[in-house]
Simulated scan of single mutants.
Amino acid sequence: MGSPPGTGADVPAAPTSTRPRRRLPIALVAGVAVLTVPDLLGIDRITPLAQVVSLRPYLLVGVAALVLALCGLAWRTRRALLPAAALAVVLVLGVVVTVPRTQPGPPPAGGRALTVLTVNALDGAADVAGLAELVRRERPDLGALVEVGPWYRERLAPLVEPLGYRIVTAVGTDSDGVTDVFGVSALVAAHLGDVTVDVDETRPFPTVIIGGGGLGATRFVAYHAVAPRPGDVAQWSTDLGELTRYCAGGTPAIVAGDFNATLDHSRLREVTAGCADAAAQLGRGLAPTWPSWLPTFLGAQIDHVLVTPPIAAEDLALHEVAGSDHRAVVVRLRLPG
Results as ranks from 00 to 15, higher is better:
V63G: 07
V197Q: 11
P108W: 04
P288R: 00
T36R: 07
N120T: 01
F220D: 07
I167P: 02
C247I: 02
L294W: 09
G283T: 07
A129F: 12
P206V: 04
R219M: 13
D198V: 14
A144N: 04
A276T: 09
T102W: 06
G105W: 10
A278W: 06
P204I: 12
R327K: 11
V171L: 09
A280G: 05
S324F: 02
F220E: 06
I43K: 10
E242R: 09
V233D: 07
V255C: 11
V195M: 10
L131F: 15
A190S: 01
V330M: 01
A278T: 08
G172F: 05
Y165G: 00
H224T: 04
G216W: 05
P15T: 05
P158K: 10
V171A: 08
R166E: 06
L66Y: 04
T196M: 12
P106Q: 10
P288Y: 04
T179M: 06
L93N: 08
C247T: 02
A50G: 14
L131A: 12
P336L: 14
V128I: 14
P15S: 03
L73R: 13
P295K: 13
T272E: 03
V178F: 08
D174E: 15
V307S: 04
D303S: 03
G257H: 00
Y152A: 10
V146M: 04
V63C: 11
A278N: 05
E201T: 15
A126C: 07
T118L: 00
A227L: 08
P12S: 13
V197P: 12
V148F: 05
P38K: 05
Q281M: 12
C71N: 08
V331Y: 00
P108E: 05
V32Y: 06
S324M: 01
A273T: 15
A64D: 09
A126P: 01
A273P: 04
A222N: 03
L82H: 08
A225F: 00
L163D: 11
I254H: 00
T251G: 01
V99C: 13
R139P: 10
V331D: 01
A132I: 08
I167K: 01
P252K: 03
H265S: 15
H224D: 03
A222S: 08
V63A: 09
T251H: 02
D239C: 04
A85R: 05
R78W: 13
N120W: 03
D176V: 14
I167L: 07
V95R: 12
L28P: 06
L240S: 06
V221P: 09
L243T: 00
V61H: 11
T207Q: 07
T296F: 11
A69T: 12
R284V: 01
T118A: 08
T18D: 14
I43Y: 12
G214I: 06
V160N: 10
R332L: 00
A300N: 09
I210M: 11
A217N: 07
P12C: 14
V67T: 10
A170T: 05
A186K: 04
L87E: 08
S237H: 03
V29R: 02
P25V: 08
G172H: 05
I311W: 09
P291N: 03
D277G: 10
D200C: 04
P230I: 02
P206W: 03
Y58M: 11
V331G: 01
V171M: 09
S237Y: 00
S17P: 12
G124P: 05
A14V: 15
I209W: 10
R112V: 13
Q51A: 14
A85P: 07
L41E: 09
H191G: 01
R45G: 14
L282K: 02
R327H: 09
T169H: 02
